[in-house]
Design a protein around this nucleic acid. Structure first.
Lengths: 190, 190
DNA sequence: GTGATTTAATATCGATCATTATGAAAATCG
DNA sequence: CGATTTTCATAATGATCGATATTAAATCAC
């Protein structure tokens, strides 16, 4: 997983992978099938790891949830004990476009991650935390772009501190809370 | 340039490049040296093209300048007559980490593009358009991340309309204009 | 302790990689 | 018009790619 993370699909040779796993070629082929299957398992494992690490329990508002997600990813992307940035981003750029299966799995994993983000934002709209006219898809794409952008900047050498500051900037684009008409209307016009 | 744009460095074979240029191998080697040199020329040409297309003359405020830059890039990244996304981003992900020269040129081009963005924002601060306590580097990194993120989303199939909406969202993170103390102080407290 | 079965390491496969030598065609110039 | 240089296409180079046969080692049942 870390070899693909660092080098991408094509640039990661079997020699690199075998050396990292400290096994021989026949063992790898018996266990995983071929390089493509190994790559898919690595990517799916990565997604499962991130999913487990970023489920953000005990957070009540959508805004806090998104901010915590971005914060955890900023930390993950600059972690010292694995390559910088995001394997999922690396995979999208370097995966072989010839294999339909690879493309399908990558698109599916990406759509799932995207869907979780969108669902939480949508929930915020339904809870009245966000204005009813919030463009949920646009906002989802925006924070998705921030995540991709953080991955690239981390790879280019950005510091964790820098990424966390960027998260704060990104949160400034969060829609202002709606006027609480129903709850407050009868109480006062201030 | 378009072959590298689409496939990245490693996945772009000499056969692909030769077919796209419609020449034979000896001609390419005589003209460019080797694959690495060709790659560098392609990347530098791309940067020059983008630089020429996005100099944004006749724009007065930093905010308009940044918004126009993002808008033009959103349009570029979804242009039909070349691969989607940004070659510079693709290059950063797929360039061989072994060659110090490639890494140096890529870092240099990136730093220059980043520097132009930062310089315009800095100018906005000095002009009083932006608050004096504006974190210029953070804001630069933020819009740089948006650009990278747009590239990835374009590659993943985002529409031009979607990217342009994202630009508007990103502009919501622009710092609020500072109170014009000097100019307006004596006139009123309004 | 010995034979049978599984595990692992070495050697090798054809294919393709980037690169260059070889030879033919074309064009330039005296 | 003929000699020479340049231009281009084909083919071959060693290296490395992903993927397997082949052979050695080790485990285990009896």
């Amino acid at each position: 997983m870390q070899v693909f993370w660092q080098k991408g699909y094509e640039a990661a040779s079997m020699q690199d992978l075998l050396a990292a796993m400290n096994i021989n070629a026949p063992s790898l082929y018996a266990a995983f099938g071929d390089k493509e299957a190994l790559f898919l398992e690595a990517v799916q494992r990565y997604h499962a790891n991130v999913r487990a690490q970023c489920n953000c329990p005990g957070v009540h508002t959508a805004r806090e949830w998104v901010e915590l997600l971005l914060t955890e990813l900023a930390t993950l992307f600059t972690n010292r004990d694995h390559p910088r940035g995001c394997l999922a981003v690396m995979a999208l750029m370097t995966a072989p476009t010839t294999s339909v299966k690879v493309q399908r799995v990558l698109a599916q994993e990406r759509e799932q991650a995207h869907g979780r983000l969108r669902a939480r934002i949508q929930q915020g709209v339904e809870d009245g935390e966000l204005p009813p006219d919030t463009e949920v898809d646009v906002l989802t794409d925006f924070y998705g772009a921030i995540i991709s952008g953080m991955s690239l900047q981390a790879r280019a050498g950005a510091t964790r501190k820098g990424l966390l500051a960027m998260v704060q900037t990104a949160m400034r684009a969060w829609p202002p809370a709606p006027a609480k008409r129903k709850a407050q209307a009868k109480v006062s016009a201030r």
